[in-house]
């Protein structure tokens, strides 16, 4: 039942650092927190277009990581229920209004016979930009 909570309905916004792209907030599809080294992938598809992992970053409680840093990050954790920020770059600025956002999370949980994780897709409305 955790899958439908992965993509947060609030907090979808454009990047505020001058780059084009956005931020979608995501939650762990598991009953407990896991070290970031066990987060194998958080795949993002925006409006049907996959965003390469190299163009995304992952932020938990203020700490930002590139996805190629996660495998060796054993001392920080994505907590259960915590809203992580998945920031992504796009070639073109995101248009105002609605976007289809799909997220698939892959987790490495040693005692489970199958790969862990989950997927969720929602139509999100871009938050109004502050000027």
């Amino acid at each position: 039942m955790f899958d439908k909570y992965i993509v947060c309905e609030e907090g979808f916004r454009t990047l505020d650092d001058g780059r084009t792209g956005g931020v979608v907030e995501v939650r762990m599809p598991y009953y407990r927190g896991l070290a970031l080294s066990m987060v194998e992938a958080v795949d993002l598809v925006v409006d049907g277009r996959p965003v390469p992992a190299a163009r995304t970053t992952f932020t938990v409680h203020g700490n930002t990581y590139r996805f190629d840093q996660l495998p060796r990050t054993t001392d920080d954790r994505w907590e259960m229920g915590e809203r992580a920020q998945l920031a992504f770059e796009t070639d073109e600025p995101l248009a105002a209004g609605e976007h289809d956002v799909a997220v698939a999370v892959r987790l490495r949980i040693s005692y489970m016979p199958v790969p862990g994780g989950g997927r969720d897709a929602k139509r999100l409305t871009l938050a109004a930009q502050e000027i």
Binding site: A35, M38, S110
Partner: peptide, 12 residues
């Protein structure tokens, strides 16, 4: 508590 044997990629 948990014993995360899969903490590191590629090995237990």
């Amino acid at each position: 508590i948990n014993n995360d044997l899969g903490l590191y990629p590629g090995r237990l």
